[in-house]
Write a protein that binds this DNA or RNA. Structure first.
Length: 682
DNA sequence: CTCCTCTTTGA
DNA sequence: CAAAGAGGA
């Protein structure tokens, strides 16, 4: 058969056949070639960690078998450049159309935009869709068309949009396969020998794949959802939805989650079930936070590496790899923090509550650079998700307008009694403290010598003393903050005097990641606690054995770093991105409206003229500034790449330059991104 | 029981 | 900084 006219469906983080708009479009258009391209190098620092790769592997196998039962198979490609691979697939199959679903992380935004340009130039019709969000980021804005700046306002708007999120699509009944005889799959390798042992254990606790995700969803909605509110405080409650890894890989559609939960909501509201209603609202809020993380990433595509509030760049972080290591190993001397870190290391999982505890401790008490912590989460979490994690860490670090105060330190001792009142969680993950009475379990340093002795605890020997005292941390935090404000004021004064461009140029970029990011093998977190009577489903199943597996990744990372740093001082995004820089900038820096547009659809955004004007000048200057400073390493549209004119970053700046968010500056690219409407008319 | 203030908490 | 909750008058 001839491949002419067939279409490519490019799977990424939408590994499902149900409610997959790109797949549905491909099926509608005729013969389909389903493709997955594994190009981790494109992700720069944020290549998936071991557990994340394990998940991906299972999920792809699952997708492949679903596709086979529908009539086609998944073509897999190993690549360092997704777009070249797409072109190869086009060439070898004669495909004339490409369909994919949107992603919103900074790297994908650049890559996907370029994919559209390149493939379109090759005569391939490209369409992309929303499969990951209730509403696209550009659909949600205030009266004046500006993006929201606080979560509450954003979420309120989402819940009161004039139209509902799209209803979920059913899976295709049958897929006609395109001709892939000249397009062989590459064998993708997601784990090496040394990782297999650890990974085998994951399989006993988790079942990746879209139909399993669907089961997990049903189980949760008919089970733990009603108790969600009641249980959310418990550190070790097994009543979270456990959907996050499924959602990360798009195995289940948020829209489906939303619709099903809504049905329960109506039901419980009618029954007058207050607890149920509260639970639903809370759960929906966590869905909302996921939406918001994409929203923020889209509007501020640098949020994974730069604080959204500019003053924080002057904060004198404690650059202490010893602290960092102690935190990773769960040896800070604060039982709740240490228990969390050991659970994370052992299982790749952490209750949301504990994520807040350990990250807040990291930022406020240890005062380590938040990006280090975020990177460690990225490497170890099963549900590692760049947008969500960036949002979480920015929130903790007080760099969101509605985030918590920077100067308020949460005391792990008190949090311990709040989230783990009986110390069960601590005892499970810190066997060395297992015999300590509950009265002292969250502050062993205060325990009488006799108590410690009876419990077999020797502080400083088999369990550490606190590496930083809370009082000392408070003092240091106050000093650091006042220093920060001074520097910030000085910089602002410099700007006003015109003594310098005021671009914050002194800043040489974020503090580099330490070379060694892994937990040492000689300090294996000890497994489960033998004296704990409670046996939970996840306890022994999720604990991987210790291997040296991660050393390999570390090597890779190091070499990547070295390679990139020859080219650039900031190795955030792979150097291949530089290629895109010139053409993109050319196009983007033009203020005129795009020439390519569907005339039936008005532009998504019409900016009030006054704002556009004031914005243009800012945009120009920032483009100038960007050129010399960054070498185009950051996604090129990043508004604050050069001068922090973002609303988050400098409030005074008559606010408007402000509006130089990606979407306001470059409405044309959104036009390109928002193909759904186009596809519906044609 | 209501009102007021103090405390806690929040994405 | 504001809303909600706790505790006291």
């Amino acid at each position: 058969m001839s491949g002419g006219g067939c279409s490519i469906v490019w799977f990424r983080r939408d590994l499902r056949v149900e409610d997959n708009p790109a797949l549905a479009a491909g099926v509608r258009a005729g013969a389909v070639i389903a493709v997955f391209i594994w190009a981790p190098e494109e992700e720069g620092h944020y290549q998936p960690g071991r557990v994340s790769r394990w998940w991906l592997k299972q999920s792809l196998a699952h997708l492949d078998s679903s596709l086979r039962s529908l009539g086609t198979a998944l073509v897999t490609k190993r690549s360092t450049d997704s777009i070249s691979s797409l072109l190869e697939v086009v060439k070898s199959t004669g495909a004339t159309q490409l369909f994919f679903n949107h992603l919103y992380d900074p790297i994908s935004l650049v890559r996907d935009h370029r994919a559209k340009e390149v493939l379109t130039a090759q005569g391939v019709a490209v369409r992309s869709y929303n499969a990951d969000l209730l509403y696209e980021p550009w659909e949600v804005h205030d009266e004046e068309g500006r993006p929201f700046r606080t979560f509450a306002a954003f979420w309120e708007r989402c819940l009161s949009m004039p139209y509902d999120p799209e209803a979920p699509l059913l899976p295709p009944k049958r897929i006609i396969s395109g001709d892939v005889s000249r397009c062989p799959s590459d064998n993708l390798i997601f784990e090496d020998e040394s990782e297999k042992g650890s990974n085998a254990l994951l399989a006993r606790a988790w079942s990746p794949g879209w139909s399993n995700a669907d089961k997990a969803l049903t189980t949760f909605i008919n089970g733990a959802l009603i108790e969600y509110s009641k249980n959310r405080r418990k550190a070790d409650s097994a009543t979270t939805s456990f959907l996050s890894p499924h959602l990360h890989f798009g195995e289940v559609s948020v829209r489906k989650v939303f619709h099903l939960v809504r049905i329960k909501q109506v039901l419980w509201a009618n029954e007058g079930n207050r607890a149920g209603e509260e639970s639903v609202n809370l759960f929906l809020k966590s869905i909302g936070l996921r939406e918001y993380s994409r929203y923020m990433s889209f509007n501020h595509p640098y949020s994974h590496e730069r604080p959204l509030l500019g003053h924080l760049k002057y904060f004198p972080w404690v650059v202490d790899e010893g602290y960092f290591k102690a935190w990773r190993q769960g040896r800070t001397g604060y039982p709740l923090v240490d228990a969390g870190m050991r659970e994370l290391w052992a299982t790749g999982w952490l209750h949301d509550r504990i994520r807040v505890v350990v990250s807040s401790f990291f930022v406020k008490v240890l005062q380590l650079p938040w990006r280090w912590g975020m990177k460690y989460f990225w490497d170890t979490l099963l549900d590692a998700d760049l947008e969500s994690d960036a949002l979480g860490w920015q929130y903790i670090s007080g760099t969101l307008p509605d985030g918590r105060e920077f100067d308020r330190i949460d005391n792990p001792q008190f949090e311990g009694y709040k989230f783990d009142p009986n110390g069960e969680y601590v005892r499970r993950w810190l066997p060395e403290l297992a015999r300590l009475p509950t009265d002292w379990i969250h502050h062993p340093w205060n325990a009488p010598e006799a108590v410690l002795q009876a419990a077999g605890v020797e502080l400083g020997s088999n369990y550490p003393l606190p590496i930083v005292g809370i009082d000392a941390a408070k003092v240091r935090l106050e000093e650091a903050l006042s220093q920060m404000w001074q520097l910030e004021a000085a910089s602002r004064a410099a700007v006003e005097n015109g003594t310098e461009e005021g671009l914050g140029d002194s800043e040489s970029g974020p503090i580099a990641f330490p070379q060694d990011m892994q937990v040492e093998i000689d300090q294996p977190p000890i497994r489960t606690n033998p004296t704990t009577a409670v046996v939970r489903r996840y306890e022994d199943q999720m604990v991987p054995s210790m291997t040296s597996s991660l050393l390999r990744i570390e090597d890779e990372e190091t070499s990547t770093d070295l390679r990139i740093s020859e080219e650039s001082s900031r190795a955030e995004v792979p150097i291949t991105m530089n290629v895109t820089q010139e053409p993109l900038r050319e196009e983007f820096s033009q203020p005129h409206m795009p020439t390519v547009r569907n005339n039936n659809n008005p532009p998504q955004f019409n900016f009030p003229l006054g704002r556009r004007n004031s914005e243009d000048s800012t945009a120009e200057s920032s483009i100038g500034g960007r050129r010399e400073r960054d070498g185009g390493v950051v996604p090129v549209w990043s508004p604050s790449t050069s001068n922090f004119t973002d609303p988050f970053v400098s409030e005074d700046n008559n606010g408007l330059g402000s509006s130089s968010s990606y979407l306001q500056r470059h409405p044309e690219s959104h036009q390109l991104l928002n193909w759904r409407r186009l596809s519906q008319t044609g």
